[in-house]
Amino acid sequence: MIATKDIAPAERARSTSFNEASARTRLELLLDAGSLVEFIGPEQREISPHLKIFDLPEQFDDGIVIGHGRLDGAPVFVAAQEGRFMGGAFGEVHGAKLTGLLRAAREIGTIPVLILFDTGGVRLQEANAGELAIAEIMRAVMEARNAGVKIIGLIGGRSGCYGGGGLIAGCCSALAVSEPGRIAVSGPEVIETNRGVEEFDSRDRALVWRTMGGKHRRLLGAADVFADDTVQDFREAALELIGSIGAFDLDRLKAEQVRLADRLRRFGACEDAIDIWTAEGIAHAEAVPELPADQFIALANRIGRASRDAR
């Protein structure tokens, strides 16, 4: 089952917004057509054992689709969070599905893993189980990378990639992000609630996007590829990253230490993303948020930092 009939129907993928699509639609269009095979699908009804304590509705897949499929004919493991169910948050079952997938990937050693993040972080109603699930996933990501597995995060969902999701993303081999794909630990509302509106005005959407959004993350080198908001663009980004990621070892962690220290030294006193972009040599930094994707990608490829030897 190879050859051209298995290539994703690119036209549909090209016209479908990654941000607006469901987790299932993203996977269906990202992978070669018809190649997705789900593990513990919704018909198994492995729901959260904890939501009933709060009289809340469950979802049959607990908000994450995991399985395997093909990308240009080559096998990949996939996990996609559904950001509309409880904000894509990590609970006990949700997290355990991803941990199991990563442990198998580690044992096999050669099949890359794509994680389609769409999450607000820990699921409040099962906070302890969710927090630990994230710790287990981080460990499993690093064990798999140590065994030679490439783990790629794709970030462009409605819930962004927040809380512990941001830490897991930071453990991946590489990330692709779109403009709506925010990456952070504390969300805007959390910062405002804890530190006041003077520290962060969560209703200032422009501030949120330029502090946490995909363009800033790409320019900073936090993400390696900027994708336009279509499933096809994320498919191409995944293929590009699978082809370019190098081996993981201690030298990479040392390079990461240097990369992050350099970032603190250069930008540690900047008050706003626009100051950072200006310091990077972008002439009209205030115009970056308005740039169309193709112009931004050209700019990022010229000026944006990459992390190819680090991370």
Partner: peptide, 18 residues
């Protein structure tokens, strides 16, 4: 043998058909 549509969210629902 089975199919799934929708998600569980405010004002929304999922339907699993088998």
């Amino acid at each position: 043998q089975s199919a799934l549509v929708g998600v569980v969210a405010s004002g929304n629902l999922e339907v699993l058909v088998e």
